[in-house]
Design a protein around this nucleic acid. Structure first.
Lengths: 227, 227
DNA sequence: CATCTTACTGACTCGTGAGTCATCAATAGA
DNA sequence: TCTATTGATGACTCACGAGTCAGTAAGATG
């Protein structure tokens, strides 16, 4: 089972046999695109294979069927999500409202704008049909993400910068516009995507949210921010 | 074509021939449940027929195939949505923040809690596969709903009760938690539905949102409201 | 009672797409 | 050069489900 072959990569041959074992990544990548775009059931494995540049038979060398491929797609999207999320918690130790703003912005950049954003829509759409995947996503992504934001909010409360809100509730209020944006971006893209500036939406959310969270005055200390 | 038969309804016969022409409603009702629960592609017409208490052939007497049935499901959910929404705009002419709060609460009761809430998830999940339906939903529901809320916000701004925000943006901020709640309710129900009080979430959103919108002081005039 | 109408049925067809496997071809080793 | 190995292939099978249609039974009509 030792795969220690010379493995000359990057040959521009359209189809070069005995290619490499990094092939699964290409398949998962193609499957992610199509699953997100068309949904699980409407995605044909032939199509995935074609986009990945392999034959359908090849996919069965790496994945035990369509559902296992789906699981691989979701799991693969979780890895960067989690690692980067936890890194954020460790690094940011600055002020309080800034911390929250940075968390939201980072989350948006990392997930909301990446391909991983489609995973959310995909998981939600297929939740009833694949409870296992839903639970994995919930436990590994949703719960951890909430803990991150909850910690930031709690810190602001402890410091007296925020009003003493229910963190469980407020975390969801902080995330809701992000979830909204992610899902909207993938579904209503054909209708009103063109006339929507998501960055402005995000900044508007941060400003509005922090105002609603402020302890006493709506004028809490804030750094320079675009109007 | 005059259908003036005695039409004795409500006979407890399991299968009573020559029944009625209100049958389409039962089929659409069953289809709504299953489409929302399992998604469009994963829903079998046999299953819809069984739940509606008819045979598959009967459905083809009323609907020209699966996609037409899907359209009927969406269209049917739009009727009460629109009518009730416009009625709200006409009735509520009270204060300003209260108007907004009532709009949000009414929307939640009418749509977020009704079966129609599943339509949103359904439309979003199948948006790429059925652009026509997506556009209908967008134009008929989303746009009108936004106009309602935008009018309320603009009114508050004009009266000096709200800060001069970008209504286009703020409308989405107002709706985002509602959309979030609706979708979450239908997808993550198996994971964390039990420990979530959606009414508290809604009230928290209203309070938080109005604070963020307040003109000068976070203490805007508010009526008695459950803690 | 005979016959027509009509709301309804469910066994059937048939296209589609997931999953299989005999085969191929490129290379390593002899 | 010959053979074994193995990544890759694509034509094939077969289950499934959308859509069809000849038939059935409950009244209506005469």
């Amino acid at each position: 089972m030792n795969r220690t072959r010379p493995l000359r990569r990057s040959l521009q041959r359209p189809r070069w046999h005995r290619r490499k074992e990094a092939r699964p990544d290409e398949i998962v990548e193609a499957a992610l695109d199509l699953f997100v775009e068309k949904g699980y059931a409407a995605t044909r494995l032939d199509e995935v294979a074609q986009r990945a540049g392999v034959s359908k038979g090849t996919m069965y060398l790496y994945f035990d069927g369509k559902e296992k491929l789906f699981q691989a797609v979701v799991r693969r999207a979780l890895v960067p999500t989690l690692e980067q999320g936890e890194a954020l918690l460790a690094t940011h130790v600055g002020p309080s409202s800034d911390l929250l703003a940075q968390l939201i912005r980072a989350w948006w950049e990392r997930i909301g704008f990446s391909k991983g954003s489609g995973i959310l829509k995909l998981v939600m759409a297929e939740a009833a049909n694949f409870p296992d995947i839903t639970r994995i996503y919930h436990d590994e992504v949703v719960q951890r993400g909430r803990q991150l934001v909850a910690a930031a909010i709690q810190r602001g409360i402890d410091r007296g910068e925020f009003r003493p809100v229910d963190t469980t509730l407020t975390v969801r209020l902080a995330m809701a516009p992000l979830v909204y944006a992610m899902i909207w971006k993938h579904s209503m893209i054909r209708c009103d995507q063109a006339q929507m500036d998501w960055n402005a939406f995000l900044e508007g959310h941060i400003e509005h949210f922090l105002r609603g969270l402020a302890a006493t005055e709506p004028e809490h200390e804030r750094r320079g921010m675009p109007s």
